[in-house]
Computed example of a mutant assay.
Amino acid sequence: MGPDIARIHHVGHIVEILAQALSLYERLGFVMPPPSCPAMSRREGAAPEPFGAANTHADFPYSFLELATWVKEGDTGSLPADTHLVPLQAPAEVLPLLVERIGETSANLAARLDRFQGVHILMFSSPAIDKVAERLTSADVRHGGVNTVRRAAPEGAKVPVETVRYLEIDGEGPDARPGTVAEGRVGRCHVVGWVGV
């Protein structure tokens, strides 16, 4: 591995029907938590509805395998019954950008599913992600810059919320979607405070 790649952070298997994929992985012996999916109200006073992408994962020491699917608008019945909806909470000035980013990610998943179900996500762990971004830029490798998100930490973590910093490699060509190469999403990730990163 190169000096700024510590290990594989995760790979992602994109599927049409998440419940069927979960059942398959459980029969193979994996322990999979209920999936989660972002949710937001489509109109004032309405209950939050799932949108974007739903996912779950099988954990390994310092890495995981992600199962993900695209959630078509209005097609909430395709998600497993125990899917955990995560209402989006962000300041009003940030929320539109957050919704846009989730929309881009889900559009990328949909585009991958148009080709075939399969492993379309590969993220490497890079402890010095800002230096990775500088190196890629100086090598004329297009990427979306370093993004920062926060999420609930895994059970047993020292802090309840962990910070994830990541960048995604952009494909080449005029019709390439941001954050995706021809086969899917490839990038770098750093979870702040995670032992073994």
Rank of each mutant, 00 (worst) to 15 (best):
G2Q: 05
I8N: 00
H10R: 13
G12W: 13
V15A: 01
V15M: 05
I17E: 10
I17D: 11
L18M: 07
A19D: 04
Q20G: 02
Q20P: 01
Q20S: 09
L22Y: 10
E26F: 02
E26S: 08
F30C: 06
F30Q: 00
M32Q: 05
M32E: 03
P33L: 06
S36I: 04
C37Y: 07
C37A: 07
P38G: 04
P38F: 09
A39Y: 02
R42K: 00
R43M: 14
E44D: 09
A46N: 00
A47I: 07
A47H: 03
A47R: 02
P48Q: 10
P48W: 03
G52E: 07
G52H: 08
A53F: 07
N55D: 06
N55M: 07
D59P: 01
L65I: 09
W70F: 05
V71A: 08
E73Q: 08
E73L: 02
S78W: 02
L79Y: 06
L79G: 10
P80E: 10
A81S: 00
T83Q: 05
T83R: 06
P87A: 11
A90H: 12
A92G: 11
P96T: 10
L98F: 11
L98G: 09
L98H: 15
V99F: 08
T105I: 14
N108L: 14
L109Q: 11
A111T: 06
R112I: 12
R112H: 14
R112K: 15
L113Q: 05
D114G: 15
R115A: 15
F116C: 15
Q117I: 14
H120A: 15
F124Q: 11
S126N: 01
K131I: 09
V132N: 05
A133H: 03
A139P: 00
A139M: 13
D140I: 02
R142Y: 10
G144H: 03
N147F: 14
T148R: 15
V149C: 05
R150K: 15
A152R: 01
E155K: 04
G156D: 10
V161S: 09
V161Y: 05
V164M: 14
R165W: 06
L167D: 00
E168P: 00
I169M: 01
D170V: 09
G171R: 03
E172N: 11
E172R: 11
G173V: 05
D175Y: 09
D175F: 04
A176P: 00
R177N: 10
G179K: 03
G179W: 03
G179P: 04
A182I: 04
E183L: 14
E183K: 04
V186W: 08
R188V: 13
H190L: 02
V195G: 02
V197A: 15
